[in-house]
Protein backbone atom coordinates (compact mmCIF):
# COMPACT_ATOMS: atom_id res chain seq x y z
CA UNK A 1 0.00 0.00 0.00
CA UNK A 2 2.89 2.34 0.71
CA UNK A 3 3.74 2.19 -2.99
CA UNK A 4 0.45 3.77 -3.86
CA UNK A 5 0.81 6.87 -1.71
CA UNK A 6 3.27 8.88 -3.82
CA UNK A 7 1.20 8.22 -6.93
CA UNK A 8 -1.85 9.68 -5.23
CA UNK A 9 0.11 12.74 -4.13
CA UNK A 10 1.44 13.10 -7.63
CA UNK A 11 -1.98 13.18 -9.15
CA UNK A 12 -3.27 15.80 -6.77
CA UNK A 13 -0.13 17.91 -7.24
CA UNK A 14 -0.57 17.70 -10.95
CA UNK A 15 -4.22 18.64 -10.67
CA UNK A 16 -3.29 21.61 -8.48
CA UNK A 17 -0.58 22.75 -10.86
CA UNK A 18 -2.85 22.25 -13.86
CA UNK A 19 -5.58 24.26 -12.14
CA UNK A 20 -3.19 27.13 -11.43
CA UNK A 21 -1.97 27.05 -15.02
CA UNK A 22 -5.43 26.89 -16.56
CA UNK A 23 -7.18 29.34 -14.25
CA UNK A 24 -4.40 31.87 -13.77
CA UNK A 25 -1.34 31.72 -16.01
CA UNK A 26 -3.06 30.93 -19.33
CA UNK A 27 -5.67 33.73 -19.04
CA UNK A 28 -2.91 36.16 -18.00
CA UNK A 29 -0.88 35.13 -21.04
CA UNK A 30 -3.87 35.64 -23.33
CA UNK A 31 -4.62 39.04 -21.77
CA UNK A 32 -0.93 39.95 -22.12
CA UNK A 33 -1.22 39.05 -25.79
CA UNK A 34 -4.39 41.08 -26.25
CA UNK A 35 -3.34 44.23 -24.41
CA UNK A 36 0.45 44.44 -24.49
CA UNK A 37 1.11 42.86 -27.88
CA UNK A 38 -2.05 44.32 -29.45
CA UNK A 39 -3.52 40.91 -30.21
CA UNK A 40 -1.11 40.32 -33.07
CA UNK A 41 1.11 37.52 -31.77
CA UNK A 42 -1.26 34.57 -31.86
CA UNK A 43 1.52 32.19 -32.67
CA UNK A 44 3.73 33.21 -29.78
CA UNK A 45 0.88 33.16 -27.26
CA UNK A 46 -0.43 29.80 -28.43
CA UNK A 47 3.11 28.42 -28.28
CA UNK A 48 3.39 29.54 -24.66
CA UNK A 49 0.06 27.90 -23.80
CA UNK A 50 1.14 24.64 -25.45
CA UNK A 51 4.36 24.68 -23.43
CA UNK A 52 2.45 25.41 -20.18
CA UNK A 53 0.23 22.39 -20.67
CA UNK A 54 3.28 20.15 -20.89
CA UNK A 55 4.89 21.44 -17.66
CA UNK A 56 2.72 19.51 -15.14
CA UNK A 57 3.53 16.16 -16.77
CA UNK A 58 7.24 16.83 -16.72
CA UNK A 59 7.22 18.07 -13.12
CA UNK A 60 5.27 15.14 -11.76
CA UNK A 61 7.53 12.75 -13.61
CA UNK A 62 10.69 14.36 -12.22
CA UNK A 63 9.35 14.55 -8.67
CA UNK A 64 8.55 10.85 -8.70
CA UNK A 65 12.26 9.89 -9.06
CA UNK A 66 11.62 7.28 -11.76
CA UNK A 67 13.55 4.00 -11.71
CA UNK A 68 16.12 3.04 -14.32
CA UNK A 69 13.94 0.32 -15.83
CA UNK A 70 10.99 2.65 -16.17
CA UNK A 71 13.12 5.33 -17.84
CA UNK A 72 14.59 2.88 -20.26
CA UNK A 73 11.26 1.44 -21.35
CA UNK A 74 9.98 4.92 -22.15
CA UNK A 75 13.22 5.62 -24.01
CA UNK A 76 12.94 2.36 -25.96
CA UNK A 77 9.35 2.98 -27.01
CA UNK A 78 10.20 6.54 -28.08
CA UNK A 79 13.20 5.31 -30.00
CA UNK A 80 11.04 2.70 -31.74
CA UNK A 81 8.56 5.39 -32.68
CA UNK A 82 11.34 7.67 -33.95
CA UNK A 83 12.95 4.82 -35.87
CA UNK A 84 9.51 3.91 -37.23
CA UNK A 85 9.04 7.45 -38.44
CA UNK A 86 12.42 7.17 -40.12
CA UNK A 87 11.75 3.72 -41.58
CA UNK A 88 8.66 4.94 -43.44
CA UNK A 89 10.25 8.15 -44.67
CA UNK A 90 9.44 7.27 -48.27
CA UNK A 91 5.69 7.29 -47.64
CA UNK A 92 4.67 10.81 -46.58
CA UNK A 93 2.32 11.01 -43.57
CA UNK A 94 2.18 7.21 -43.42
CA UNK A 95 3.83 6.95 -40.00
CA UNK A 96 3.47 4.52 -37.09
CA UNK A 97 4.15 7.14 -34.37
CA UNK A 98 0.56 7.65 -33.21
CA UNK A 99 -0.07 3.90 -33.17
CA UNK A 100 2.95 3.27 -30.94
CA UNK A 101 2.01 6.15 -28.65
CA UNK A 102 -1.54 4.79 -28.25
CA UNK A 103 -0.26 1.27 -27.52
CA UNK A 104 2.09 2.72 -24.88
CA UNK A 105 -0.74 4.67 -23.29
CA UNK A 106 -2.84 1.52 -23.12
CA UNK A 107 -0.10 -0.74 -21.78
CA UNK A 108 1.90 1.53 -19.48
CA UNK A 109 -0.63 4.16 -18.46
CA UNK A 110 -1.52 7.72 -19.40
CA UNK A 111 1.65 9.35 -18.08
CA UNK A 112 4.01 7.06 -20.00
CA UNK A 113 1.85 7.57 -23.07
CA UNK A 114 2.25 11.32 -22.79
CA UNK A 115 5.99 11.13 -22.24
CA UNK A 116 6.59 8.73 -25.13
CA UNK A 117 4.55 10.97 -27.42
CA UNK A 118 6.24 14.20 -26.37
CA UNK A 119 9.77 12.75 -26.39
CA UNK A 120 9.17 11.20 -29.81
CA UNK A 121 7.98 14.52 -31.20
CA UNK A 122 11.03 16.26 -29.81
CA UNK A 123 13.71 13.72 -30.66
CA UNK A 124 12.48 12.83 -34.13
CA UNK A 125 12.86 16.49 -35.03
CA UNK A 126 16.56 16.30 -34.19
CA UNK A 127 16.66 14.03 -37.24
CA UNK A 128 13.96 15.68 -39.36
CA UNK A 129 14.69 19.28 -38.34
CA UNK A 130 13.55 21.34 -35.38
CA UNK A 131 11.29 24.25 -36.04
CA UNK A 132 8.38 26.28 -34.71
CA UNK A 133 6.19 23.19 -35.20
CA UNK A 134 8.10 21.03 -32.69
CA UNK A 135 6.14 21.93 -29.50
CA UNK A 136 2.87 21.35 -31.34
CA UNK A 137 3.85 17.90 -32.50
CA UNK A 138 5.10 17.08 -29.01
CA UNK A 139 1.80 18.18 -27.53
CA UNK A 140 -0.35 16.37 -30.11
CA UNK A 141 1.45 13.04 -29.83
CA UNK A 142 1.60 13.37 -26.05
CA UNK A 143 -2.04 14.20 -25.52
CA UNK A 144 -3.18 11.31 -27.73
CA UNK A 145 -1.14 8.91 -25.60
CA UNK A 146 -2.49 10.49 -22.43
CA UNK A 147 -6.11 10.23 -23.56
CA UNK A 148 -5.57 6.63 -24.66
CA UNK A 149 -4.24 5.78 -21.20
CA UNK A 150 -7.12 7.51 -19.39
CA UNK A 151 -9.79 5.94 -21.60
CA UNK A 152 -8.27 2.51 -21.09
CA UNK A 153 -8.20 2.97 -17.33
CA UNK A 154 -11.84 4.10 -17.34
CA UNK A 155 -12.76 1.08 -19.45
CA UNK A 156 -13.93 2.94 -22.56
CA UNK A 157 -11.00 1.68 -24.59
CA UNK A 158 -10.31 -2.03 -24.88
CA UNK A 159 -7.19 -3.83 -26.02
CA UNK A 160 -9.09 -5.22 -29.00
CA UNK A 161 -8.23 -4.34 -32.58
CA UNK A 162 -11.57 -2.74 -33.31
CA UNK A 163 -11.62 -0.51 -30.27
CA UNK A 164 -8.01 0.64 -30.77
CA UNK A 165 -8.49 1.25 -34.49
CA UNK A 166 -11.61 3.34 -34.00
CA UNK A 167 -9.94 5.41 -31.30
CA UNK A 168 -6.68 5.71 -33.29
CA UNK A 169 -8.39 6.88 -36.45
CA UNK A 170 -10.57 9.43 -34.68
CA UNK A 171 -7.74 10.68 -32.45
CA UNK A 172 -5.32 11.11 -35.35
CA UNK A 173 -7.83 12.86 -37.57
CA UNK A 174 -9.49 15.12 -35.00
CA UNK A 175 -6.91 15.65 -32.25
CA UNK A 176 -3.66 15.58 -34.22
CA UNK A 177 -5.08 17.01 -37.43
CA UNK A 178 -7.26 19.48 -35.59
CA UNK A 179 -4.42 20.95 -33.55
CA UNK A 180 -1.66 20.76 -36.17
CA UNK A 181 -3.78 22.60 -38.74
CA UNK A 182 -4.34 25.47 -36.33
CA UNK A 183 -0.60 25.50 -35.67
CA UNK A 184 0.36 25.52 -39.33
CA UNK A 185 -2.08 28.33 -40.01
CA UNK A 186 -0.60 30.38 -37.18
CA UNK A 187 2.94 29.64 -38.34
CA UNK A 188 2.17 30.66 -41.91
CA UNK A 189 -0.03 33.71 -41.51
CA UNK A 190 0.79 34.71 -37.92
CA UNK A 191 -2.72 36.04 -37.78
CA UNK A 192 -6.06 34.50 -37.02
CA UNK A 193 -9.00 34.41 -39.38
CA UNK A 194 -11.78 31.86 -39.74
CA UNK A 195 -11.48 31.79 -43.51
CA UNK A 196 -7.78 30.98 -43.39
CA UNK A 197 -8.47 28.32 -40.78
CA UNK A 198 -11.11 26.72 -42.98
CA UNK A 199 -8.75 26.84 -45.96
CA UNK A 200 -6.02 25.16 -43.87
CA UNK A 201 -8.41 22.45 -42.78
CA UNK A 202 -9.51 21.82 -46.36
CA UNK A 203 -5.97 21.77 -47.73
CA UNK A 204 -4.83 19.57 -44.85
CA UNK A 205 -7.75 17.14 -45.20
CA UNK A 206 -5.95 14.51 -47.27
CA UNK A 207 -2.79 14.71 -45.18
CA UNK A 208 -4.82 14.09 -42.04
CA UNK A 209 -6.80 11.39 -43.81
CA UNK A 210 -3.63 9.53 -44.86
CA UNK A 211 -2.24 9.96 -41.36
CA UNK A 212 -5.44 8.60 -39.80
CA UNK A 213 -5.53 5.67 -42.23
CA UNK A 214 -1.88 4.94 -41.42
CA UNK A 215 -2.67 4.91 -37.71
CA UNK A 216 -5.62 2.57 -38.21
CA UNK A 217 -3.50 0.36 -40.45
CA UNK A 218 -0.63 0.17 -37.97
CA UNK A 219 -2.95 -0.40 -35.03
CA UNK A 220 -4.73 -3.13 -36.97
CA UNK A 221 -1.51 -4.91 -37.86
CA UNK A 222 0.87 -4.29 -34.96
CA UNK A 223 -1.35 -3.61 -31.95
CA UNK A 224 -1.91 -7.22 -30.93
CA UNK A 225 1.69 -8.50 -31.28
CA UNK A 226 3.01 -5.28 -29.76
CA UNK A 227 0.67 -5.40 -26.75
CA UNK A 228 1.59 -9.05 -26.30
CA UNK A 229 5.30 -8.18 -26.30
CA UNK A 230 4.85 -5.33 -23.84
CA UNK A 231 2.67 -7.39 -21.52
CA UNK A 232 5.22 -10.18 -21.64
CA UNK A 233 8.05 -7.82 -20.69
CA UNK A 234 5.88 -6.31 -17.97
CA UNK A 235 5.14 -9.68 -16.39
CA UNK A 236 8.60 -11.12 -16.94
CA UNK A 237 10.44 -8.28 -15.26
CA UNK A 238 7.69 -6.73 -13.13
CA UNK A 239 8.09 -3.37 -14.86
CA UNK A 240 6.06 -0.20 -14.27
CA UNK A 241 3.73 -1.42 -11.54
CA UNK A 242 0.08 -1.68 -12.39
CA UNK A 243 -2.70 -0.90 -9.92
CA UNK A 244 -3.42 -4.49 -8.82
CA UNK A 245 0.27 -5.25 -8.29
CA UNK A 246 0.60 -2.20 -6.08
CA UNK A 247 -2.38 -3.37 -4.05
CA UNK A 248 -0.93 -6.85 -3.65
CA UNK A 249 2.30 -5.35 -2.31
Amino acid sequence: MSEKQPAKNGISKRTLLATILILFIIPVTILFGVFVLNDRKYYFISLLIIIYTMIPFVMVFENRKPKARELIVIAVLSAIAVAGRGAFFMLPQFKPVVAIVIITGVCFGAESGFLVGAVTGFVSNFFFGQGPWTPWQMFCFGIIGFIAGILYKKGFLKKTKLSLCVFGGLATFFIYGGIINIASMLIFTSQFSWKALLATYISGFWFDMVHAIATVFFLYTISQPMIEKLERIKIKYGLIETEDEAVSL
Binding site: V58, F61, E62, K65, P66, L71, I72, I74, A75, V76, S78, A79, V82, A83, G86, L115, V119, T120, F122, V123, F126, F127
Partner: peptide
Protein backbone atom coordinates in the same frame (compact mmCIF):
# COMPACT_ATOMS: atom_id res chain seq x y z
CA UNK B 1 14.90 17.75 -15.70
CA UNK B 2 17.35 14.89 -14.95
CA UNK B 3 14.96 12.01 -15.70
CA UNK B 4 13.67 13.42 -18.94
CA UNK B 5 17.06 14.50 -20.21
CA UNK B 6 18.38 11.00 -19.54
CA UNK B 7 15.49 9.66 -21.62
CA UNK B 8 16.33 12.14 -24.36
CA UNK B 9 19.97 11.15 -24.46
CA UNK B 10 19.04 7.46 -24.46
CA UNK B 11 16.57 7.92 -27.32
CA UNK B 12 19.16 9.83 -29.31
CA UNK B 13 21.60 7.01 -28.78
CA UNK B 14 19.04 4.27 -29.47
CA UNK B 15 17.89 5.63 -32.79
Amino acid sequence: IPGLSLILSMVLRFV
